[in-house]
Structures are given as structure tokens and as C-alpha cells.
């Protein structure tokens, strides 16, 4: 383990991991950040002239988190004992057996640690058996999926629907489930209605368009608990058009996906962009500020205006800027 001074890169400290006798985690108490304590064996004399600390233990304090991950990596490295392959200093402390006093305390700590480890390995065991059960179920479901794909009239529509809902709750990633845009799924219809109802007003305020990423954030912020996944948001939004909700999905040529108001048409977008351009030439950033939309969408609006011959681009090192198209307006 090596420490390097942020300001002076030539100043560093190191700890040979073979000297670590025991790692002890101290969970955080009231007002205390969690700590890891390393109990160290006495250092051996070194051939190189460096300053050696004789401290018998070392504490790491994790004020901003990350302790669990750090501890895992450290334990992992120490367990591997890679230094033995390099003929580095050998750990003599382990062989000398336990003494009374501090060593006795260390032993006690070690048994405690063992207990914790056992608990965790139990959890992993349970996880293993759970996954075995899942595996069988998934395998069976996949056989059925191939049947549906081949579609030799063996499976009725009802059964397909049933299968799809099984796959969905199991989380099997398959084209069959992904294209399940059949409006028979009540859950997504409800979600679509909820999104539409919650976002109609914010959409009006932000000029009628909003990226789906924004939609995802707003929906989940509004929910607080029982959040919805990105996939679910996308799927629900796909249903909106068929359900004739006031909002629907729009996919731009660039691959940007947005939610738009139904009575919000391209001509309105172009007209708005044109009006803004008449005031001053604009970059996507500037248009975003003027209209209160996101920068990504502002860029799409400008490109759309350009395509319709309303705007002209000026591409320079200062970025992409658009001017009103004077060529066509005279």
C-alpha cells in the first residue's frame, strides 16, 4: 500500500501488506465516521535507508464513504499473499503463535471477524441456491419463447400473453417481451396516464418538449418511493399515442427521445425558433435559455429549422451558431 502526497509527488509512504496481522472494521456510531483499523507486526530492518514507523496499528477514517469497498479490496489482496511470489519480506508473525496480552486481544478480534465472515458466506450460499432455482425457471421459459417465435400454431394468443407477463416479472431480456406493446398491459397504461397527467403542465411551461431523461427524473422525483425503471418509462410513453393521451413520444433523427404535447406541432417549433432567431443569432445554449428548454432539445429545434430552410448555420470554433435564412426570405 502506497501513499503519495497530493502536492509533493516525491513524498510517499508505504506499508508492506505482509505486516498486516488483522483488519478490524469499526462501524460508525453517532457523529463518528466508520474506520478500519490495521494491526501490524513489527517491521523488519530494511536494506534501503528509509524512515520506518514502529507504530503497532493504523487507522483509516472514511468520512465520505467507501469503507466497505476499500475493506473488501484490502482483504482480498492480503488473502492472496502475492508478495510471497516475489521473495519479499516473509510474515514471521503468523508463525510465532499467539501470546497473551495484545496478541490475546487480537485473537479474540479474529474469532469475531470469523463470525461475521461466516454470516456473509451464509448469505452467499443462499444466493447460490436462489440462483439455481431461477436458472431452471429461466431455462424453461426460454424453451417456450422459441416455441412462440416459431409459431407453429401451437400456442394460443392467451398463452403468449401469459408467457410475456411471466418473462417480464422474471426480468428475462428477450425481444418477445420487449416488443410487447400490446395494450393489454394494465400496469403500463396506468403508468402512461400518470406520466402524462403529471407532466402536461411542466411540458407546457418548457415549450412543449422534454427529453425522456428529464421525464425519468421528474417522474421518480415525484414518486419518491417505488421508483420506476428507465425501461418502464420508455414502454409507458410508447403506449401514449394509442391511448390518445395529451402527451406522446417523439424520436428525433439523432436518436434523442423526447416527450411532446400532442397539440404541439413542428410548425409551432419552427415558428418559435424563427422568432427567437430574428432577435439575435443563436447557439443551442442560447436558445435553450431563451425558451426554457434543455440544450439537447434546443439543438434539435435549430436543426429542424435549418432543415425547413428557416435557419442558416455558422460553424466555427466558437461552436455551432444559427442565423435567420435571408436567402429565402427576400
Amino acid at each position: 500500500m502506497i501513499w503519495v502526497d497530493d502536492n509533493d509527488q516525491s513524498c510517499s509512504m508505504r506499508l508492506h501488506l505482509s505486516l498486516v496481522v488483522l483488519i478490524e472494521e469499526q462501524r460508525h456510531g453517532a457523529g463518528n465516521s466508520p474506520k478500519i483499523m490495521l494491526h501490524l507486526a513489527p517491521p523488519r530492518p530494511s536494506a534501503i535507508s528509509v524512515q520506518v514507523s514502529s507504530a503497532s496499528h493504523l487507522k483509516f477514517s472514511f468520512r465520505k464513504g467507501g469503507m466497505v469497498e476499500f475493506s473488501r479490496r484490502l482483504t482480498d489482496q492480503i488473502a492472496r499473499k502475492r508478495w510471497q511470489n516475489f521473495g519479499g519480506p516473509q510474515n514471521s508473525a503468523g508463525q510465532s503463535g499467539f501470546r497473551i496480552g495484545i496478541a490475546g486481544i487480537e485473537r479474540k478480534l479474529q474469532t469475531e471477524q470469523k463470525g461475521v465472515n461466516q454470516q456473509i458466506s451464509h448469505a452467499f450460499e443462499d444466493l447460490n441456491s436462489l440462483m439455481k432455482a431461477a436458472k431452471d425457471t429461466v431455462a424453461l421459459s426460454k424453451i417456450l419463447v422459441t416455441k412462440v417465435k416459431n409459431r407453429q400454431g401451437e400456442i394460443t394468443d392467451d398463452e403468449t400473453t401469459q408467457l410475456k407477463s411471466y418473462l417480464l416479472s422474471l426480468g428475462v431480456d428477450d425481444p418477445v417481451t420487449r416488443e410487447a406493446s400490446r395494450s393489454d398491459n394494465i400496469y403500463f397504461q396506468k403508468l402512461a396516464k400518470e406520466i402524462s397527467a403529471n407532466l402536461t403542465i411542466p411540458l407546457k411551461e418548457s415549450g412543449g418538449l422534454m427529453t425522456l431523461t428529464d421525464v425519468y427524473c421528474r417522474v421518480n422525483r415525484a414518486r419518491g418511493l417505488e421508483l420506476v425503471s428507465p425501461e418502464d418509462v420508455l414502454r409507458a410513453c410508447r403506449l401514449m399515442k394509442a391511448m390518445r393521451l395529451p402527451t406522446e413520444l417523439k424520436i428525433f433523427e439523432s436518436g434523442v427521445i423526447a416527450l411532446e404535447l400532442r397539440d404541439f406541432s413542428e410548425t409551432v417549433v419552427i415558428k418559435k425558433t424563427q422568432e427567437a432567431l430574428e432577435v439575435s443569432p443563436l447557439t443551442a445554449d442560447m436558445l435553450a435559455k431563451t425558451l426554457g428548454v434543455s440544450v439537447i432539445l434546443a439543438k434539435e429545434m435549430l436543426l429542424l429549422a435549418e432543415k425547413q430552410g428557416v435557419a442558416c448555420r455558422d460553424e466555427s470554433i466558437e461552436g455551432l451558431k444559427f442565423y435567420p435564412n435571408r436567402f429565402l426570405s427576400t
Binding site: 444466493l127 429461466v138 417480464l168 416479472s169
Partner: peptide, 23 residues
């Protein structure tokens, strides 16, 4: 670590536990 293990196992059997909030 437990979470990572869980995710990896799910991936190995072809399941995405995060796909749907309804799963």
C-alpha cells in the same frame, strides 16, 4: 460486494433484475 455478485449471477442466467420496476 454482495450486490455485485448478485448482479453477475443474474447476468449469467440471462436475467436483468432491473429491467422492470414491476418484476
Amino acid at each position: 460486494e454482495f450486490r455485485r455478485q448478485f448482479q453477475e449471477m443474474c447476468a449469467s442466467i440471462g436475467v436483468d433484475p432491473l429491467a422492470s420496476s414491476k418484476g
